[in-house]
Write a protein that binds this DNA or RNA. Structure first.
Lengths: 359, 359
DNA sequence: AACAAAATGATAGACGTCAATCATTTCTAG
DNA sequence: CTAGAAATGATTGACGTCTATCATTTTGTT
């Protein structure tokens, strides 16, 4: 953009620190002292060098710098292990990206954590502290206190990025994830729209009120329906602890007990159970079904018209963003401009065809 | 992932070509000849070197390579100029990204083309051919024949990426953009869902049948409604040539003439005219309004409940992807894994808050 | 003016790759 | 067996930055 004139001419050359030193009228050593803040430089020299930098549009050549220091980026990702399809998808993407990132000297280690055990997270983090990583991304747990290891990391200058579930603001450098209240509101909006003003009743399934994200989603959904769709009644939430069997039973019960039911929204996980319930149970004539997270089985159900909408968090995008953030933080660079990460809505027509099998 | 063991130990080092040569039992020169395909190497040597590479997990250090060749990436983006808010947003993102990319030695030139003039595109491309860019991204035009300049570029080894509107498959290396039939189907699905089985009629506005993307969207929308929502009638399409005034008039007429109208879908541009019409005209009790492309005014209208859904192409994501593709193509690298780019659905709750003003 | 302290200059090796050159060895055909 | 071709080895400078050392100049203090 700023370089159209140069661009046209055959040879473009970025100014080097030597160029800066020359136009500033100082030696390379001094320019270097200024650039790398090594101190022992007179104010007026600092001034001269900085002016030369802006004048020439000097940009530090990160590649050369990394080469000279033999820089390698070692990033650790702490992600819940186990059978959860969403995190499986996340780990799969991480693995794929990892191969490509090798060329950029980015090494990735994935540490499986126990999804709901605070101790496991704590232990994983301590492992990272010891492994002298350059950056860490953590899927946190709102109930666990990770202050000590996180502060230890950040005291070492290791940036920490919260992933999917936020950490206390002062314990991390950035948060990459959706706003779950927004996700809930989005669900509420779509449920409301699907009623076209007709009366209806929504069955709600959630894991537990202890999960902050589930709470937020429920709240968002309720907010929108109460404000904009008084024709839609909210039935009491059933809690499933994200267990497939419990989800199944709750869905069957909801469908059977209330013949006014027109919509079902599962705020949490365990959708396989829900799908089984939908297969075996008669569905009302008017029925709108909405779940979270696009994985192979929810995708199939979407295409097969068992469910109508999937709200997805785009774990691949989140991983990419985490990586970008970590690199920028480590290099002390500007973070590239990126649009706010919001929940994605999939209906059966805009669903990507390349969702990997994770089962 | 593959390097957990190394990761744990304090010092990690990527193998260099010297290491490869050593374990292959050949000189650096020979290893280099293999790595850079310079020829004049015996088959068995090639074999030995390649084996050593896979054995050690050698990955070419792109940073060092680019440093030694003084590589600079010069990418040209041919994007329609003028007042169109969507392309304004695209150019704005390009500009922002450009600043950050300077650190990676990526220079970006944006060439404004005349949105609908084939000659302008042709001229712009010839300009690029002359400017010896390293890669080109073009917003094409289905009606124009760009075979000559495109082939000239690709003959020079300059990768060409089609953006937003596809080019003939054999004339480009990749296409970055949404599938417009999918976009239309998505619109149709949402319109259908919004009727909850009640009867309705959809007013359709489009620019012109000459625009391939508009055709595709109309077709997709019709497909879904006819197949899955027989209760929704499709009214004849009004053609607006993407002119605000014509869009306004068509919308007013549609709302006035047909009291059964329950939805309006503008397949094309000129939404400012539509918004004016919605402000001044009485809307039916049941009314679902859907448009394309999130820009400041459509975002405002979404939040203010004038429209219900915006289907967006995510120009920022498209730009980023184009950049990634071009870099990978130039470096002859693998393209990082990325999920299929599909149209994004925005309702007023999941709409990003940081859409820049482009008016 | 003398002296220490602060600032500056000059320079060199390392990082991994590319792109050369030139000498030497090995292979192949007649 | 030998000339010529093909293959290989050895080596070098450049790219831009970092890090270090050491010599020299300038500054400020008494």
């Amino acid at each position: 953009m700023r370089c159209i004139d140069q661009f046209k001419s055959a040879a473009i050359k970025n100014p080097t620190l030597t160029d800066v030193a020359r136009t500033a009228g100082v030696s390379y050593a001094t320019a270097d002292r200024v650039a790398n803040e090594r101190g022992n430089v007179a104010q007026k020299s600092v001034q001269k060098v900085k002016e030369a930098m802006t004048q020439l549009g000097y940009v530090r050549n990160v590649a050369a710098a990394n080469l000279s220091t033999n820089r390698i980026y070692r990033f650790a990702f702490l992600i819940p292990g186990g059978k959860n399809a969403f995190f499986k998808r996340m780990r799969l993407h991480l693995q794929r990206v990892s191969d490509v990132m090798m060329a950029d000297r980015v090494h990735i280690e994935v540490i499986d954590t126990d999804a709901f055990k605070s101790a496991s997270l704590f232990e994983g983090l301590q492992q990272v502290v010891a492994s002298n990583a350059d950056g860490v991304a953590v899927v946190g747990l709102s109930t666990s206190n990770l202050e000590k290891p996180l502060n230890a990391l950040r005291a070492q200058g290791v940036p920490v990025v919260g992933l999917v579930s936020d950490l206390p603001t002062h314990q991390r450098d950035a948060y990459i994830g959706i706003n779950n209240k927004v996700a809930g509101r989005t669900a509420g909006r779509l449920i409301g729209l699907s009623h076209a003003g007709l009366p209806g009743a929504v069955a709600l399934l959630a894991g537990s009120l202890k999960a902050q994200d589930h709470c937020d989603r429920l709240m968002g959904c309720r907010e929108v329906l109460e404000a904009d769709f008084p024709n839609v009644e909210l039935l009491p939430t059933a809690f499933t602890f994200d267990d497939q069997q419990k989800v199944h039973d709750a869905a069957v019960e909801a469908l059977a007990s209330n013949d006014r039911i027109t919509a079902l929204y599962n705020v949490g996980a365990g959708n396989i159970g829900l799908l089984k319930a939908l297969e075996s149970t008669a569905r009302p004539a008017r029925f709108f079904c909405l779940v979270h997270e696009l994985v192979s089985h929810t995708r199939t159900a979407l295409v097969n018209k068992q469910i109508d909408v999937v709200i997805d968090q785009r774990p691949d995008v989140e991983i990419n963003r985490a990586m970008t953030y970590l690199q920028a933080l480590v290099d002390n660079r500007d973070i590239p401009p990126m649009q706010e990460h919001v929940p994605t809505i999939y209906v059966r027509d805009n669903v990507p065809s390349d969702i990997p099998e994770t089962d």
